[in-house]
Design a protein around this nucleic acid. Structure first.
Lengths: 384, 384
DNA sequence: CGCTTACGAGTAAGCGCTTACGCATGTTAA
DNA sequence: TTAACATGCGTAAGCGCTTACTCGTAAGCG
């Protein structure tokens, strides 16, 4: 009942284990006959090589680790589903796609709020590279990891240690959105619902929004702080309507969940979106498409982030210097109804429109295995 | 720049590698002083044990593999997002949670439609057990795998080989739903939108629905076949309204996506849900909550499936015989508006209700590490 | 004071694989 | 015919770790 080893196979095929190894790994210097004999024996025995032993001997595990933050189980389900979990899932899907393409495996580790980063540390000893998503571990931990292992920090601010940062173009996306609101819709008074100060993404978005608004001759007439959750968006909406106050004509939320919170409260209060107040989000989570009205937002290519991270690590692990310390993926404006844009017909139309919105999943540059791309805002190239 | 090995550590601490190993693994028979010295040296060196070597020597990898089907990239995004992908993500989250609890790692493999199951096969050599989700691999492949490795088949029909099946109580959930429609709402004429014949889940649901309807004195007045996608639901809706025909008073869809497809088309045709036609789904995907009207459905505890699978494998890998060849998790009726139930107020109310719907994430029986539970329909115990 | 025990730590034998090296053959060229 | 080389395969040395076994030392006992 013990799994057959290379010795069993060698005996069965009547050759040495070295020959078996060469046959299985398609190395040169073997006669066709011997190779066939070994492969046949392997088939008969149902032999599967022990990857652990292979990794030890070969000196590489051909495995990429991915570290994501896992929220504690006690948040409300709505928040839990919407929040970074889904983002993390998409990243994992993308990473898995790339890993599969290069024949690597993906090892998963979730970091719980108070569990510390031991799980991430342990991955150093069993992977060829590590993806750290968002702020799953502290900056110090990231520095420690990146000093002794190839590390890609995903959706991080910018590289501080030896890690390579793969992120989206927050500034560019925010600019697109603001230009849409100010230039195309003519809104001059914009409100902003920020994220927590600890989130670099949100901070970049916020600062950019302010700057671009000024540049375009609009002004920020109000600013509220949320924590990225739907309920914090609801609280913000209540604060801005306290005592019968009227919210700004247009409100930009730094993520979709908070925007959904606004929609909830405005619907309850009878404030019409977009006719009374235009609302926008950021990220294009699934719910943005199903919100009523459909949420105008900026798409984050979460799967591509994961795929790109794996490509980068592959380069790093195989000795190629990464093309850049920082890889920036472009974002895309997704226009739905919540900003005031006409959406002809009912939801079906929206669905159709959405389908068009989605780019072909295979990016052209992903055809070349293992190559990462440096792409900037709205198509402009950007690297540091 | 080479990672420090146990030899480096031993030298630094002035002891043998055996002592280092004992210190790091908290084995008995070491003086406090020596242990402390080793740990201090480890800290200084930033030593991380090589799990590959450890696994080889120890004879177990403390890793669980999870094999999920990954749809090809060319499906429409709506279908892709809703379909098994999200289910797979939830399963992975649950599995990760359990794995983390027992100190195991999770290795991910996606099986693409035409890539074959080599990826799954290779996992045998690097894990202590395998979770195969849904129908990621063929029955023959599953048999092959389960013959030489601990395997849990998730959401599978019933065990055929040596694998343990972990699934939800499809029959029980369907019964709850049918009882709700017939007994509480008094609908006597029910339509059914089935899934593909190849999906055992859908088949069980369909047969149960027919049987229960008869038992309760209702009748099935129409049956349409879809493929689980939203667009197939839309097609079904068009077929049932062809030539001005009127759909059945109540329609039970074998999953949520198809139900959403019905909602789309009915909205377009001006058929009111639930006033003209009641519609129900199955699975309780996220979108069910955001559909208009909110979709009455049956919740699949996807995360718990993953968590339970890991618990089972842990038992199997550590030599405990699994409690049962088949573990069935209970389902839960989620009542929203699409069946005709009153939902007071607007969406906020729905959200609140939903929050209540969700059980505390920690199941009581999950407190005992590594123990799997056998729970049946609606709380009744069931095992085979 | 001599003997048994218990304790702490070292020695060495693997775990299953890859690969550098070496050694027979068979093949070619002078 | 023989040197020179390619070809095909076996031998053996690790990869970094765990652990069964061994052994020196100090404590406990009559």
């Amino acid at each position: 009942m013990r799994a057959p080893t290379i010795y069993d196979l060698a005996e069965r095929a009547g050759v040495s284990i070295a020959t078996v190894s060469r046959a299985l790994n398609a190395k040169a210097g073997l006669s066709q006959a011997t190779r066939a004999r070994v492969l046949a024996a392997a088939e008969e025995l149902g032999y599967v090589p022990n990857s652990t032993a292979r990794g030890l001997s070969y000196g590489a595990t051909e495995t990429i680790g991915i570290v994501v933050a896992t929220r504690s189980v006690n948040v409300t389900p709505a928040d839990e589903e919407h929040e970074s979990l889904l983002f993390g899932d998409a990243v994992i899907r993308g990473a898995e796609r790339s890993a599969d393409r290069i024949g690597y495996a993906l090892l998963l580790a979730g970091i719980r709020p108070r569990s510390g980063w031991t799980a991430a540390k342990n991955m150093v000893g069993r992977t060829d590279g590590l993806i750290v998503v968002d702020r799953a571990v502290s900056e110090e931990a990231l520095a420690w990891l990146s000093e002794r292992h190839p590390v890609v920090a995903l959706a991080w601010d910018r590289p501080k240690g030896r890690e390579v940062v793969v992120r989206i173009d927050n500034a560019g996306g925010t600019r697109l959105l603001m230009e849409h609101l100010v230039v195309e819709h003519g809104f001059r008074e914009i409100g902003i619902v920020r994220g927590p100060a600890s989130a670099p993404d949100a901070t970049v978005r916020w600062h950019t929004a302010e700057r671009v608004a000024l540049q375009l001759g609009a002004q920020i007439v109000g600013s509220w702080v949320g924590d990225f959750s739907t309920s914090s968006g609801e609280r913000a909406a209540r604060r801005m309507t306290e005592g019968g106050a009227w919210p700004p004509r247009a409100i930009m939320c730094m993520n979709d969940q908070m925007a959904v919170g606004l929609l909830n409260v405005f619907a309850e209060l009878g404030i019409a979106v977009p006719d009374d107040v235009a609302v926008t989000g950021f990220d294009d989570i699934i719910v943005a498409r199903y919100a009523v009205p459909g949420l105008t937002t900026v798409r984050q290519p979460a799967e591509e982030l994961g795929a790109t991270a794996v490509d980068c690590l592959y380069d790093m692990a195989t000795g190629l210097a990464p093309a850049s310390r920082e890889v920036v993926l472009p974002t895309e404006l997704v226009v739905r109804a919540s900003c005031g844009c006409p959406v002809s017909g009912a939801r079906r139309q929206t669905v159709t429109k959405d389908s068009r919105d989605w780019p072909a999943a295979e990016r052209s540059w992903s055809q070349a295995p293992g190559r990462a791309a440096v792409v900037g805002a709205g198509g402009r190239a950007a690297s540091s």
